[in-house]
Design a protein around this nucleic acid. Structure first.
Length: 449
RNA sequence: GCCGAGGUAGCCUAGCCUGGCCAAGGCGGCAGAUUCGAAAUCUGCUGUCCGCAAGGACACAGGAGUUCAAAUCUCCUCCUCGGCGCCA
């Protein structure tokens, strides 16, 4: 969140932020009005409390001297009544202020593209298109080839969990494990990341710290009867693990990575563009989380993007990099790059000129002090007496299902098999191709045919 | 889940039984004095909020209550540690 001083003293910037994000500015005006009233009451309450303290002290003196203090006690009780009324209203206003403040988004960095919707995102680069593999014509979509090879099973997942879930089987499950391990190893060995495996149920407090709550409660799964939510992204537990702590300069930069399953309700997201496993309720992801000193965050975002891109380069998957425009930024982000992998099968109107479509596999964001302020993430700079909020950043490194989609489509062969990208063969015992075969076989499905 | 002990400032600790006299003391950090410079020493500062300021309010895990007055008494919640139980 933004701090109150920013809201008061840099109102124009906050207003600009709401405007370019396409958010309602009414909230800001309400907030300012509430703040003004609150400050007035705060002042009155403070002076009443001061008087009460003086009177109380006097009572103590009188009693110790063995004298009567009835008048003072009466005065004190009177003050208490007045104070109660003022405090009741002030508390109410304060709570209102807090909740409004939590709904004011991060101010985007100057210089980011200003735009009305995702069409205004700016494509920065395309990579990996110089030497493309020879592709079958037509390319079989991942949901079909996944079923043919018996490695993705949505039908059976419907029996255990409903729609929007899938089983990975045989080489599909092995490919998933291989990709996870490959990503973790790469980031650890070459980018200096420290591994973390966090708890998956997450408290409301932590969800608020990174900005998922209170505004986006409907996006996540809440556990019945508990104040806990299923992890929507490892960003939440990993960013919150140092909640209310003050880190030392030598702790920085913090570079943590975590593989977790991620759970999202994705209410209302159905249609042809979401067929298969591109938009599901549960998916695995390796997340990169960074904490840095404020002056380093701009540079770190570029480095973070490069670290995430390295996964695509090693897997030799063609992709592009977008810089998100103001209205497409997430709530807490000041600047975001998206990495979209090329999935050649389904021709979409907004897809690349070679056909197929773009799938977002990573989003690299600089949150500035926005999350740090909410979550109480501070550090004590060398030669300074007071703690300061640090800057948080994160990037997916990367999301698994869409990488799987890209591999199944881009690496497929005319004979219906899929070549394993060289970078991950060591994780599959040297295996070069995925040829399918579920030992349980089709007869066990029992579709009634 | 049961029993017990705890949670005080960036860190360590006292105060709690017996309510009031600024949450004492130490470490660390900052500033000043001293010094050619440093060490040592001394002094001040070292949380949040309101206020132009003077100043004031708040803060002892969180919340509620008792009281003229709560770190201190009462109740509830959370968390940590130890023991018992259960368990992949």
């Amino acid at each position: 969140m933004l701090d109150r001083t920013t809201i008061r003293e840099e109102t124009d910037r906050v207003r600009w932020a709401l405007e370019v994000r396409g958010d309602d500015e009414g909230l800001l005006d309400e907030l300012l009005a509430v703040d003004e009233r609150w400050r007035e009451l705060k002042g009155r309450g403070d002076s009443l409390r001061h008087e009460r303290n003086v009177v109380s002290e006097r009572i103590g003196e009188l009693k110790r001297a063995g004298k009567a203090a009835e008048d003072e006690i009466a005065r004190s009780n009177e003050l208490k009544q007045e104070l109660d009324a003022i405090e009741a209203e002030a508390d109410e206003l304060e709570a209102d202020l807090e909740s409004k403040l939590l709904e004011i988004p991060q101010i985007p960095y100057e210089g980011i593209p200003v735009g009305a919707d995702e069409a205004d995102n700016v494509e920065r680069r395309r990579e990996g298109f110089a030497e493309l593999r020879a592709l079958p014509d037509p390319v079989v979509p991942h949901y079909d080839i996944g079923e043919d090879l018996e490695i993705i099973d949505e039908a059976r997942a419907a029996k255990t969990s409903g729609s929007g879930f899938y089983f990975l089987k045989g080489d599909g499950a092995r490919l998933e494990h291989a990709l996870i391990q490959f990503m973790l190893d790469l980031h650890r060995e070459e980018h200096g990341y420290h591994d973390v495996f966090p708890p998956i149920p997450i408290s409301s407090e932590a969800m608020t710290g990174t900005g998922q709550l209170p505004k986006f409660a409907e996006d996540s799964y809440e556990l019945a009867g508990e104040d806990l939510w299923l992890c929507p992204t490892a960003e939440v537990p990993v960013t919150n693990m140092y909640r209310d702590e003050i880190l030392l300069p030598e702790d920085l930069p913090v570079k943590h990575q975590a593989y977790t399953p991620n759970f999202r309700r994705e209410a209302g997201e159905h249609g042809t563009q979401t067929r298969g496993i591109v938009r599901v309720h549960q998916f695995n992801k390796v997340e990169l989380v960074n904490f840095v000193e404020p002056e380093e965050s701009d540079e770190r975002l570029e480095a973070l993007l490069d670290e995430a891109e390295e996964i695509l380069r090693r897997l030799e998957l063609p992709y592009r990099v977008l810089e998100l425009c103001s209205s497409d930024l997430t709530f807490a982000s000041a600047k975001t790059y998206d990495i979209e992998v090329w999935a050649p099968a389904d021709d979409m109107p907004d897809g690349p000129d070679r056909g197929g479509r773009w799938l977002e596999v990573s989003s690299a964001s600089n949150f500035g002090a926005f999350q740090a302020r909410r979550a109480g993430l501070r550090y004590r700079p060398a030669h300074h007496e007071s703690a300061e909020y640090l800057h948080t950043l994160n990037a997916s490194g990367t999301a698994l299902p869409r990488i799987m989609v890209a591999i199944l489509e881009y690496y497929q062969n005319p004979d219906g098999t899929v070549t394993v990208p060289e970078a991950i063969r060591p994780y599959l015992g040297g295996q070069k191709r995925i040829e399918g075969h579920d030992p349980i076989g089709e007869t066990a499905v029992g579709e009634g045919s």
